[in-house]
Design a protein around this nucleic acid. Structure first.
Lengths: 197, 197
DNA sequence: GAATAAAATTGACCGCGGTCATTTTTTTGT
DNA sequence: ACAAAAAAATGACCGCGGTCAATTTTATTC
């Protein structure tokens, strides 16, 4: 029928509008929070009609996915550029910004888990993409350093991700704070990554 | 001020209404699905006004939490009564009904993760309660059988839970089916529970 | 058993996400 | 340069979760 790149012509006006919506949303989130973000406020700040929003984003979640995915990409890049951790404490130190963001708001974490698995192979979302990138990075970390060598690094990477999510999820339990999170995560990763004694 | 049991008198009419709401909701879910459940349909089937619903349940999620929590309790009981698994294949076989339910609908899984961490220690919800019970059960499983002895069983139990959630989450990725889930979970649990070779 | 207080129920109403037929703007063909 | 087609934007409208002042039912007191 048609090639991939010519499926639908897009006018520059449209991408400008999309940028306005994203910028307005980011500003509102910075002023207040993800939780209190309203589509009506976004379109108001962007100076467009409500219907326009949904011509650019399938739903409100799709907007949040873009914004949160971009943030995750930033953390991933920083982690990828910092030196490979030589022990578990260093590993957790590298993750600290990511953890801080993930625990900053319940809404953020909810959106993240909701989109962590890809919807489909062809149409993989930005958050799922960053989760994949994270696992690849963790796999590289696990493959070097003083960690166990009896298991496929890819599998170890997936495990690190699973434990990170588990530790974060328990944070939203009123009892456990950020301090407890790192201690807990250290316990998981020690048992998961270190050779058995 | 007052004892725990006398904080507020409850009439039997009220608990009857609550039962009607729960029964109506369960029937509607059985006929259709969790996803399509509407509060208006529930109150219609129960023969009460909309406001009554929210006098009995904080929000729609609270109703789902009750129903899903009860289902989880059933699975937990069955698992607790069946013999302790002697290897990972048996362990996964024990989990099969729980897995089937958790993957039956996206909505079910979403509600589960959303409530898996307790909201507060005093006011622990039914789903969080069942997660705790599950982890306790997994800990007992991990403590016996051919599994690693170098790590606190409680920690191993938490890990089993984390891997189960991770495996289920990846199921909702279009590519991976139920078959792939069990294979994936077996890989996680082998690396997590077995002594390193 | 009438009066009073408390508990339970009611339904009109609101907030907000999402839809869609219609209108406005841009591109394309000749 | 004009007309026809495609793309983008519009805003009235809907669905559904959730609220609350008002009403009805039940328990209590004399």
């Amino acid at each position: 029928m048609q090639t991939d790149t010519m499926t639908k012509p897009i006018q520059k006006r449209a991408i400008a509008t999309r940028e306005k919506l994203l910028a307005a949303a980011k500003a509102l989130i910075e002023q207040d929070s993800f939780e209190h973000l309203r589509v009506e406020d976004v379109v108001g700040a962007a100076g467009v009609a409500k219907g326009t929003f949904f011509a650019h984003f399938k739903d409100k979640d799709a907007l949040l996915e873009q914004i949160i995915g971009a943030r995750l990409a930033g953390f991933n890049e920083a982690m990828a550029q910092s030196p490979v951790p030589e022990n578990i404490a260093e590993m957790i130190a590298r993750m600290r910004p990511l953890i801080a963001f993930s625990t900053s708001e319940r809404t953020v974490f909810d959106v993240m888990v909701r989109h962590s698995g890809a919807a489909a192979s062809a149409e993989i979302g930005p958050i799922a993409e960053q989760f994949d990138a994270q696992i690849a990075l963790y796999s590289r970390w696990a493959a070097s350093g003083p960690f166990r060598k009896d298991t496929d690094p890819e599998l170890l990477g997936e495990g690190i991700s699973a434990f990170l999510i588990q530790a974060i999820a328990l944070t939203f339990c009123a009892l456990h704070g950020q301090q407890a999170l790192e201690v807990r995560l250290a316990g998981y990763l020690t048992a998961w990554l270190l050779p058995q004694s």
